[in-house]
Amino acid sequence: ERLDAEGWAAARDWGLATIVDLRCPYEIGWRDGDPAPLDIPDVTVVNAPTEDHDDEEFRRVCFPILDSPEYWPHNLRILPALVRTTLEAIAAATPGVLVHCSAGRDRTGMVTALLLANAGVEPDLVADDYELSVRAMAGTASHQPTHDRQSTWTEAQVDAWIAEVRPHVAHFVRDVPALLDNIGVSHETRDQLRDLLVG
């Protein structure tokens, strides 16, 4: 919604072919101040949310920690079919693929952590990637209808947060094959996802 014609042209020049949008349907749409909607040829947009904000258990367990990777294992446990469907959508996408949510660090962070670990990236490096996302987005307003406390954080707040949550990221990806088994991701899908990154 926030890309203008120049931004879309740059994305097409980069090779963008598919967007996998992790947001819930109610988060999607143009708001005041967004550029006018454009018809973007040759770019497929797939909505594949990882969360269901109407699910009572998800709300109760995850909402208090929704901006922390601490919620990622709960998301897989409570809504395994949604996360599996998201990964299948990415695997089936035409490269180049852009995966995003509203702030680019929580849902996108979870999916990216799964993709990187599935491709053989070590847990500490996956945590480094998450840290880069948090640092890039801190102090930046996200495109979501709810409040994002990290949008006002200082560098010192980010440093403290990273020190607190890095262990959650590394622990989450410690045994990704087991996580993917638990949510029913096929080996064919895992191979397709790996090939998108290293093939």
Score class of each variant (00 low, 15 high):
117 A>G: 09
51 E>P: 03
27 E>H: 12
75 N>M: 12
29 G>K: 00
141 A>Y: 10
54 D>G: 11
55 D>C: 01
151 S>A: 15
76 L>H: 09
142 S>G: 15
149 R>E: 14
139 G>W: 06
92 A>M: 09
88 E>Y: 07
59 R>H: 07
27 E>Y: 11
102 S>C: 11
127 A>E: 04
25 P>K: 06
61 V>I: 15
39 D>I: 09
98 L>N: 02
21 D>A: 05
59 R>P: 03
25 P>M: 05
59 R>N: 11
131 E>C: 09
106 D>W: 13
115 L>P: 13
42 D>N: 12
21 D>W: 04
67 D>V: 14
157 Q>C: 07
132 L>K: 13
44 T>A: 12
67 D>Y: 14
125 L>P: 06
69 P>V: 11
99 V>D: 08
156 A>G: 04
154 T>F: 01
73 P>I: 01
125 L>M: 14
147 H>L: 13
41 P>N: 09
91 A>T: 10
28 I>G: 09
75 N>L: 12
35 P>H: 08
39 D>H: 05
82 L>H: 10
45 V>N: 06
134 V>W: 00
101 C>T: 03
80 P>R: 02
52 D>K: 03
135 R>L: 08
100 H>E: 08
125 L>S: 11
92 A>H: 11
135 R>H: 02
33 G>S: 05
53 H>R: 12
131 E>K: 00
64 P>W: 01
75 N>S: 14
68 S>C: 05
58 F>G: 02
112 T>M: 11
99 V>T: 09
40 I>S: 01
152 T>P: 05
55 D>M: 01
109 G>Y: 15
107 R>D: 04
138 A>S: 12
106 D>L: 13
120 G>V: 08
55 D>R: 00
61 V>W: 06
75 N>Y: 02
78 I>K: 04
67 D>G: 05
126 V>W: 03
51 E>R: 08
147 H>D: 15
102 S>I: 09
105 R>S: 15
138 A>D: 02
85 T>R: 10
123 P>L: 00
139 G>E: 07
86 T>L: 01
81 A>T: 14
119 A>D: 08
22 L>F: 10
22 L>T: 11
131 E>H: 02
72 W>R: 09
129 D>H: 15
36 A>Y: 00
144 Q>Y: 10
67 D>L: 11
